[in-house]
Amino acid sequence: MSSLNLDEQDGILRTISDAPPTHYTIKIQSLSLLSKYSLEKYESGEFEAGGYKWKLVFYPNGNKSRNVKEHISLYLVLAGANVSQTCWEVHAAFRLFLLDQNTGKYLALQEKNERHFHGMKLDWGFDQFLSLEAFTGTSNGFLMADACVFGAEVFVHKEKSTCKGECLSMIKDAVMYKHVWKIDNFSKLNAESYDSKTFIAGDQKWKIELYPKGRDSGTGSHLSLYLALADQTSLPPTSKICAEFTLRIIDQMYGSGYHYQYNKVSWWFSASSPKRGWPRFISAESFNSTRYLVKDSCTVEVEVTVQGTASALE
Rank of each mutant, 00 (worst) to 15 (best):
L78E: 04
K64F: 08
Y24I: 03
G119F: 05
F58P: 05
S44N: 13
V77C: 15
K69T: 11
L76G: 10
Y37H: 02
Q101P: 03
V90W: 05
Q85N: 15
L109R: 02
V77Y: 10
S17I: 02
Y75K: 13
D18L: 00
T103D: 06
R115V: 13
V90Y: 04
Q101G: 09
A19F: 00
T22G: 10
S73H: 14
E40H: 08
L74A: 10
N113Q: 15
S17Q: 04
E114G: 09
A49Y: 02
K41G: 06
E114A: 05
K27T: 09
Y37K: 07
T25N: 02
H116K: 15
Y52Q: 10
Y106K: 05
S44W: 09
S84M: 11
L34K: 09
L33A: 08
S44P: 12
W88A: 08
R115N: 14
E111P: 12
A81T: 06
Y24F: 15
L56N: 07
L33Q: 14
L96N: 08
E114H: 07
T103K: 08
N67T: 07
S84P: 04
R14D: 05
G80M: 09
E70L: 09
K55Y: 13
V90P: 07
H118K: 14
H91V: 12
K27D: 05
V83R: 15
F117W: 12
I72S: 15
Q29F: 00
Y52F: 14
L78A: 06
S44K: 10
F97E: 00
Q29S: 01
L99E: 11
K36T: 14
L98I: 11
F94G: 02
F97Y: 15
K105D: 08
E111W: 03
K64L: 06
D100M: 02
